[in-house]
């Protein structure tokens, strides 16, 4: 019977393949995908997990061999030591002793607070410079045509690739010659120079898509070009501008090479400060992890905001999200 009455859909099934069209094939594909997902994401996420878990372990548990995968008891010791040492290093010990009757005593010497303040100063300054200079330039580069424009854009794009290690030595020489060694101001300028080209590319993309009709309407409302820029375009560009600022801010917050070579440890920003700390106290990993979490928080908050601009910024707008 079966031979005389073949599957009526057989004709449709000529092109079917084992892997994609059979139940067994589907199981094989699903298993492979599940395994891949597990391995790949374990690799990405485990170190993050490890940082968090370590921060909540006691100093004694940190020393244990083999290490514990889950902390035996959750402890805020790491965070407490970070805060205490900041208070101590900042010279607030007696203030806290008088106010709260709490004696901060830490053998660890990391002044997180002043590192964070230094970094904030540098990052906000660099963000502001990159934003103002970059936006002004991008507007003209988008709206006007002039000789050398494409070359200039290419130089900006290329300059994104160099900073850091390729120019640290001449940068040191330049900064020494300018007499700006160990100043936060020079870091602000350098980080501004490193991020302004980003801002130029990102904002040029915005201005390229900006409708001419709105600019024409503002002309008819008797705005000069500067007024059009300030009163019409800037408010509309708000989101892109915030993204640009955060972008520059994050770079300055994370940068190690220039901060390490152009500052003394008295004026360190977070990255070199943390590096010194890690190398000095790398048996107290719970404290290191706690400090790491504290200084990573601004970055993670920033990431949440600019995620959708991220790719555009990184690739000079070549890949749009």
């Amino acid at each position: 019977m079966a031979a005389q009455d073949p599957d009526p859909t057989a004709e449709f099934r000529r092109n079917e393949s084992w892997l994609f069209d059979t139940t067994a094939g589907a199981y094989v594909r699903k298993t492979a995908v599940a395994l891949l997902t597990l391995v790949v994401f374990a690799f990405v996420l485990f170190p993050l997990y490890w940082m968090v878990v370590t921060a909540f372990k006691t100093t004694a548990e940190i020393q244990q061999i083999p290490p514990t995968v889950f902390p035996n008891d959750f402890s805020l010791e790491g965070f407490r030591l970070v805060v205490e040492s900041s208070i101590q290093a900042g010279g607030y010990t007696s203030l806290f002793a008088n106010l709260f009757g709490w004696q901060a005593s830490s053998a660890i010497d990391i002044d997180i607070l002043s590192l964070v303040l230094n970094s904030l100063k540098v990052a906000i300054g660099a963000g502001a410079i990159a934003l103002v200079f970059g936006t002004a330039a991008s507007y003209v580069l988008s709206r006007r045509d002039f000789a050398g424009k494409n070359a200039l854009m290419s130089i900006f794009l290329a300059s994104l690739m160099f900073p850091g290690t390729a120019i640290m030595v001449p940068e040191w020489e330049l900064v020494s010659a300018l007499g700006l060694f160990n100043t936060h101001l020079v870091l602000i300028f350098i980080y501004g120079a490193m991020t302004a080209p980003f801002v130029v590319w990102l904002m040029k993309g915005f201005f390229d898509d900006f409708p001419d009709s709105i600019i024409e309407a503002s002309r008819i409302d008797q705005c000069s070009s500067i007024e059009t820029f300030w009163y019409v375009i800037v408010p509309m560009a708000r989101n892109s501008l915030i993204a640009s600022f955060i972008f520059a801010f994050l770079l300055a917050w994370n940068e190690l090479v220039f901060a390490l070579t152009l500052l003394d440890n008295s004026r360190y920003t977070v990255p070199p400060g943390l590096l010194t700390f890690v190398q000095g106290f790398n048996t107290q990993w719970n404290v290191v992890a706690a400090a790491s979490i504290i200084i990573s928080l601004p970055v993670l908050l920033g990431l949440a905001y600019i995620q959708r601009y991220f790719v555009q910024g990184l690739t000079g707008g070549a890949i749009k999200g």
Binding site: V132, S159, A166, L174, M194
Partner: peptide, 14 residues
């Protein structure tokens, strides 16, 4: 300003 900044702190060092 951008050109000057990039020129001084990135291109000149090269």
């Amino acid at each position: 300003p951008v050109t000057a900044l990039v020129g001084l702190f990135i291109l000149y060092p090269i």
